[in-house]
Structure formats: C-alpha cells, structure tokens
Design a binder for these strands. Structure first.
Length: 180
DNA sequence: TGTCCGATATCCT
DNA sequence: GGATATCGGACAT
C-alpha cells in the first residue's frame, strides 16, 4: 500500500530510519520498477552544514526542500549523476532524506549501491523535480512486508561531505541495513 | 560573463 | 589510497 502524507511529515531522522525496508516503485512505459530501500541519509537544514539548505539557503535548485514531506528533491552532481531525495517534515522546514541504495526486485544480480545508481536503476532525472510521491502516477513508496531485525540497522557517518567540517561529517545520520 | 566545485562512480596503483 | 570525467548552479565580478 502506498505511503501517505502522514508518513513523510514525521521528524526527518525517523523517516530516514523508517524508509528502510519500504519499497520504492517507479512506473515506466507500462512496467513497474521496484526496489527495497536499504540505505538512507538525513539532511536537516538550516542547522546542518552539509545540507544544501544550511542557514536557510534558498535557491532555484533547492526550492523543493522547503516543501512539506513527500516530494522529490532531485539534482545533478559531478555533472553526471542524479540524486534522489525525499522531502520530510513540515513546510518551510528544509529537511530531506537521500536514497543511497536499494535491493533491486525488478532485476536480480545487479547492485544498486549508490545514489547515482539508484537514479539509473529507476530511470530518474530532472523531470522528477518536485514530483509528489503521495499522488504521482510514475513514482511512489509502498509499505513492504520486509523482515529484518532492528539489530541489522547500523548508523554511520554520511558520505562525501568532508567540506562540512568534523562535526557534521561525523554525525551518524546515515542508516544502513546490513546483511540484507 | 567567468570561475569554482560538488550529498559519485570507476578505474588505476 | 588517489585521479578524474563532466556540467550546471551558485556566486563573485
């Protein structure tokens, strides 16, 4: 069953953790692409120095971060990789969760173990900027009956944000399901 | 209008 | 562990 707005407007660290085991679904040309979310990262502006909305920075690129929970914040990094984030919490609270990895259901024996690969696998690009996961007909999140133990969830530092300084680059806002 | 650089992936040693 | 491809957004000029 598709997750509703209530799920996404909870506090960001809870959403980041609760997204583990949920199923991301993409409808593309009559086919469904599915993957079980296995890794996420929380970005909590305006206090978070690693967030695009640090100090309430507000630009054309990150405007979606200021939406309430449940929208796609998607952007290009390094000139070639798209990153899928899901907005969280309330309007004007620029917080989101980066989807870093999924366990692919549609194709077996491939790894979808990085945010760039997630967007390749689900065929996501800039046209999904601002897409509403609660109402969209081409992308949404479903509840799964996925079983893993609470002890399989590990908290780790976020990746690729050394520029944010020791404190923010070491804070454990990355959530990973181990031995999935 | 110009310069800088990144919430990565991949190949190299 | 390190190099680097590749390009649009951000911001200074």
């Amino acid at each position: 069953m598709r997750l509703k707005r209530e799920f996404f407007i909870q506090p960001t660290l809870k959403v980041a953790q609760d997204l583990l085991g949920k199923i991301l679904v993409r409808s593309n040309q009559g086919k469904l692409i599915k993957g079980i979310i296995t890794e996420t990262e929380a970005y909590i502006g305006p206090k978070d120095k690693a967030s695009h909305s640090y100090k309430n920075k507000f630009t054309q690129r990150n405007i979606v971060e200021y939406f309430l929970g449940g929208f796609c914040y998607i952007y290009l990094v390094y000139g070639m990789y798209w990153q899928l984030n899901i907005t969280t919490f309330l309007a004007n609270k620029p917080e989101c969760v980066l989807i870093r990895a999924v366990f692919p259901i549609s194709k077996r024996k491939i790894l979808v173990d990085g945010p760039g690969k997630v967007c390749q696998y689900f065929k996501l690009d800039g046209s999904f900027f601002g897409e509403d996961l609660v109402t969209s007909k081409r992308i949404w999140v479903e509840d799964g009956k996925i079983s893993f133990k609470e002890s399989q969830i590990k908290r780790k530092p976020r990746v690729g944000i050394d520029y944010a300084g020791r404190y923010w680059s070491r804070i454990k806002w990355r959530f990973v399901v181990e031995n999935f």
